[in-house]
Amino acid sequence: MTHFPLTSTLKSSPGTLGRSVLVAIYRKPTVFLGALLILAALAAALFAPYLAPYDPEAFAVGPVLSAPQPGYWFGTDEFGRDMVSRIIWGARETLLVGLLAVSISLGFGLTFGLLAAYLGGWIEKLFMRMLDVLFSFTEILIALACVAILGPSLINATIAVGIAGIPVYGRMTYSLVLVERNKPYIESCRAMGAGHVRIILRHLIPNITPSLIVVGTIGISTAILAASGLSFLGLGAQPPSSEWGAVLAGARDYFSTAPWLLLFPGLAITLVVLGFNLLGDGVRQMLDPKQNK
């Protein structure tokens, strides 16, 4: 589910999208904060080997179950592993899962939605009915069913979240293409003898891309939440993975004795998700004419 529905095609081309993002960051402090959070997470993910003070899976780099203290700012876990290092390395897995899941949703959603809207006819009808059905299932049920079939692992959880998101992006693409399809320029392209493939690749896709990027940005936050939720239930990443949901699941046993183990991974998820939500929402508001009146 994406919590920020688009009301219409964003008034933007891929070229101006970048500029709009910069303007939004400059003008709105919340968007700036969002961008900052995402940058921080990206930096952690990319430069984990240089940033992390310790090997995230190495035992006894510090005392066992130590509260936050200089040198171990987020404390240590039951094996004396450094939580700062685990969180930094975990950013890698967490972000990757979010990106991969959204790519799956977006890839399939785009294909189905576009074909349905462009081709019309019985394909469109079938697509619409399938969407109705899939939306009644709710995403979590689809994800759970996928995990039940594939078995618990981080990659399977990612696939499950990705599949569960297909209807959202399918419907989004569908409604965006529907608007574009009826615009006069498509008609004139066709009149000038442009083929379907050309129209789709050269006109439709570029025109709906900015909207999809914005929705996808917000979608990453949903995907991260869903995947870390599955890991937390034991249906995703397995120990000793430092994926944040899995770290949180392991910390559950130390609920009363070492609460900091719960605090930091949860905070990390919240902040990254917040980052994507703030950035995506801010840019959407800039570009969405209806919201921006």
Binding site: F232, L248, P259, L274, N277
Partner: peptide, 25 residues
């Protein structure tokens, strides 16, 4: 509005644990 963005961003499983820790324990 900022609080709603927060509300959407907090993982429910984490919020639940925090509530459990504070109000339960």
């Amino acid at each position: 509005m900022t609080s709603t963005v927060m509300g959407i961003s907090i993982p429910p499983f984490w919020l639940g644990l925090i509530l459990l820790m504070v109000f339960g324990m």
